Simulated scan of single mutants.
Amino acid sequence: MTVTPVGPTDPPTEEDAVLLYVGGPLDGRVEVREARHGAPLPVVTHTHLHDGPKVVHVYDLHPLTPAAGVYHLRPAEVPVDTAAG
């Protein structure tokens, strides 16, 4: 039996999931998650490191079909002003 490794240039199969990112720094990115990695994660966190403080973006999965979904940027949490009131 011959095993052919799956590489990044292989076209997606019917078992793979095609995922689109909407919003934030990953906006427009399309990812093919190979079936061997299991189902897409319900939440993806992207951390951007640079000269300033780290910036964390959270994406929530909205499945379209068993093999396709869209990760939407979760709105930033606004701190509650405890002095207002």
Rank of each mutant, 00 (worst) to 15 (best):
V58C: 02
T45V: 13
V30W: 07
L49W: 05
G52K: 07
V32I: 13
L73F: 01
D81S: 12
H57N: 10
G38I: 11
V18D: 03
V70Q: 00
H48L: 13
Y71M: 02
P53E: 09
D81H: 06
D27Y: 02
V44L: 06
D16N: 15
R74L: 09
E34W: 11
E14F: 13
P25Y: 03
G69C: 09
R33H: 08
L26D: 01
V80L: 13
P79D: 04
L26E: 08
L20G: 07
H62G: 08
A67G: 11
V70I: 09
P40H: 12
L26H: 01
D51H: 15
V56H: 05
P40L: 02
P75Y: 00
V18I: 15
G28F: 08
L26T: 02
E31L: 08
L26I: 01
V56K: 05
T47C: 03
P42W: 02
V70K: 00
V22E: 09
Y21R: 05
A68V: 12
V30E: 04
R33T: 12
T45F: 06
K54G: 07
R33G: 06
H48F: 09
H72P: 01
H48E: 12
D51F: 08
A68W: 14
D81T: 10
L41S: 09
Y71V: 02
L61D: 01
L20V: 08
Y71W: 11
V18P: 04
H37Y: 15
K54M: 10
H57G: 04
H57D: 06
P53L: 08
L19D: 07
T45W: 09
G24M: 00
P42N: 10
A76E: 14
V58I: 13
D51Y: 12
L64M: 04
V56Q: 02
D16G: 15
P79S: 03
G38F: 13
D81C: 04
H57K: 01
A39W: 12
P53I: 10
V70G: 00
K54D: 09
L73R: 00
R36G: 11
